Every structure is written in C-alpha cells, then in structure tokens.
Amino acid sequence: MIVATAPGRCGVLGNPTDMYGGSVISCSLSERATCTLTDSDSLILEADNGESQVIHALADLEPSAEFPRLDLAKAVLKGMGIVPGTVGFHLTTSTEIPMQAGLAGSTALMAAVYGAVSKKIGRVEHKHAIAAAIRKIEYEILGVICGFQDQHMAVFGGLNYMDFRDKGSHIAMDAQPYATVEPLIELVPQPLPFVLAHTGVKHHSGAAHKPVRQRWLDNDPEVRELYDNVVPRLARNGKKAILEGDWETIAALMNQNQEVQFRLGASGAAVDKLVEVALANGAIGAKLAGAGQGGTVLCLTFEPERTIAALKEAGAGRIIRPVPSQGLTVTQE
C-alpha cells in the first residue's frame, strides 16, 4: 500500500501576486489531503464521498458529471501520461481541508495523487519539478487560472517566503525559472498568532481571479502598479518583520494587502464582513487567505478566544488554527 499526503495552505502576505511574478509569504496547515494506492488488476478511482469508477480507456479520464469528485485524480493521471489497461491499482482520495475555501484543498489533493502514483510507477523528481508538474496539470488540463503558491506549498510545506520572479501564465513553461522557496519555520516561534475563519461561501479560485487578471493583461495602470510593485513589497517587508517577531508590522501589512483586494473588487462581501468583525474583536490584522469572493479569512490576533467567538457569531463556518506542517509525504508499506 502506498499513502501520500499533502497540506493545505493560507496566504499570509503578497497574494495573489504569485500569478504575476510577485512574492508571497505562505503557511501550510496541519489539515491534509490523502491518496492511498492498493494493488488491483484494474484501474479504480474512489473518493471519500463514495464515488467510484473503473477506468477502462482514456475517455474515462475526462471530467464526468456523474463522478465530479474524481475529476482531480483523473486530471493528474492524464497529465502523468497514465494509459488505462497498462497499469492497475485502486486509488482512493480523502481530505481534511475544506474544499473551495481558498485553502488550496484541490491542489493538495492533486499533489497527494501525483506523489502516490509517482511512487507506484517509479518516477523520481525533485520538489521544484513536482510543483511545476502539478501546476501544469491544474492550468493546462483543468483550465484553472492559478498562480504558483498553492503547488509549491503543497509540495514544500512549512512557512515560506517565496519569490516567483519571471514566472506567469503569460510566459512559456520551459522559459520560466524555478521559484525561490525560503523556509522561515525554524526561525519563527510557535504557535503562530493566526486564526482562519471560513466564510461558508464556496468559490472556484479561477473564477475569482479572472476579472482582475484580465485587467492586468490589458495593462490597466492601477492593477499593474498594485500587483507588480505594491503587493509584492508587502511580502518582502513581511519577511523581515516575521523574522524579527514584529507582529504589529505583519498585521499592518496584512491590512494593506486586504485594502488592495477590496479596492480592486477582488475581496467579496462575505470576506469584508468577517474582516470587519475580526478587527473589531481583538484581531490587529485580517485579510483573505486565498483568491477572494468567498473562501477564508486569515486573522492575526493575540485574543483568539474573543476573535473566534465574534467570528462564529457573525456566521463564520469552520475555524482553523494554522499549524505549519511538512509538505508532500509518500510512504509505502
């Protein structure tokens, strides 16, 4: 049996400039997605909601309205060049990460599938290559408008400063350098003063990113200035602050990041409501943790009980305390 797991993540600073060659600080979660492979003569896919399908031909790897929870695993198999009939195993997926919540749950699940199948077929790659392969599948096969933060956090894990200079969907994949991933976790005291609150509004990150991204592609001067210059500097300045334990500065930078997203209409009413509630109840910083238009809010608070109680009263769904965890793991029994 092969078991692979990968973590979710929350964007601390700089998002969404990982789509635009920018810089971010991101924290992995203890919540993880899991893929288990057991021996089988057939190629069988199964999700934790009970959906199950035997894959007989390449056509079976296309998205299906009948088995939507299997679409991510199918995309990974397709992207890895797996040919039905030439390999057999029973692949099962499950997750602890809220899906469509701005916490990279889909990417974590894809990373777990990629890791497990790679082990099965004997594919060995370094972490940067794995992150690049997962991102290519997400962007080219699933057609998701996405950056590079999610895939790198699923693979590397931890608490990282990441620089995506000269990377972007508008640049050919083979012309892009690898990202710079700088681990911060060993230099930052735990526990981190963060709380995550899900708005209860599910979203598709590609749909959330699309309107502002089109403005960026159209060379809108406001979007270009904010995403090319202003927001990436927040993460670069945040690196110094977080290493010095200057949480007040981190909070101020988070608030600036959120103000940019609000200004561009990329935040959303549900996010804005929880941000306001958090800041009025003990939090000194609050921002969206992912793409926006729903999803999850990240709060920096030294009064977590007070902040959490207010968020729940305001209608927040699941509450998570971010605990950085390792990236993609693969074990074989």
Rank of each mutant, 00 (worst) to 15 (best):
Y178N: 15
Y178D: 15
A179L: 12
T180S: 13
T180H: 12
P183T: 12
L184I: 13
L184A: 09
I185K: 13
L187A: 15
V188S: 07
V188E: 05
V188Y: 04
V188M: 08
Q190W: 05
Q190C: 10
Q190H: 13
Q190R: 11
P191N: 02
L192D: 06
L192S: 03
P193I: 01
P193T: 04
P193H: 01
P193D: 00
F194T: 08
V195M: 02
V195L: 11
L196S: 05
L196M: 06
L196T: 03
A197C: 00
A197D: 09
H198D: 13
T199R: 05
G200S: 09
V201R: 03
H203G: 09
H204M: 03
H204K: 14
S205F: 02
S205K: 03
A207M: 04
A207Y: 04
A207Q: 08
P211V: 00
V212F: 00
R213L: 06
R213M: 13
Q214A: 10
W216I: 06
W216C: 07
W216Y: 13
P221S: 10
E222M: 14
E222H: 13
V223G: 09
E225V: 11
E225G: 10
E225M: 14
Y227L: 15
Y227T: 12
Y227R: 05
N229P: 08
V230I: 14
V231M: 10
P232D: 11
R233W: 10
L234G: 06
A235M: 12
A235F: 11
K239L: 11
K240T: 15
A241V: 10
A241K: 05
A241Y: 13
L243M: 12
D246S: 08
W247N: 04
E248V: 11
T249I: 07
I250L: 02
A251K: 00
A252G: 08
A252E: 02
M254G: 02
M254V: 00
N257C: 00
Q258F: 01
V260A: 07
